[in-house]
Amino acid sequence: MVSRHNLSHAFEIKGGDFGKAGCVSLEIKEILRDLGIDPAIVRRAAIAAYEAEMNVVMYAESGKVVLRLNPKVIRITLEDQGPGIHDIEMAMQEGYTTATDQMREMGFGAGMGLPNIKKNADRFELKSKVGKGTSYNIIIHLNPEGGT
């Protein structure tokens, strides 16, 4: 296992800015790829980040993403200022969505986002306060054996 330096990067996401939606995740992907991390792991991190980023663009006013890396895990945390999620259990079910027509026209809003983050992450914690915002904590192990 190649030892890697600890790393931390912060990014801002603007809600409603569909033109830029996905830019942060592409940047995250580039950073991880340039570090020589296993491409399969980079892809999972990028997909999870992208789904979370799209949620911020679609539903929230703004969001802050922090990418942290240590020799064992990739951690992506995202905190948004937005409406929050009324029923997290419902939102985690495939196909459940509150998307608008505009979101669907963009190719999103099928109710697959949160379940897909869970699928790609080794650990996914979602916290939300209605009227305040939602926070995502996405953890992906760098070693297949796992362990945080």
Binding site: R43, G107, F108, N116
Partner: peptide, 27 residues
């Protein structure tokens, strides 16, 4: 539906789509 592409695709696929916005390229 980019949501489906994100959830179901595999690395290296040929992606056919009628959605020609920037999001399709990012996805």
């Amino acid at each position: 539906l980019m949501s489906d592409v994100l959830a179901l695709s595999r690395p290296g696929i040929l992606l056919l789509t009628g959605l020609a916005n920037t999001q399709s390229v990012r996805t």
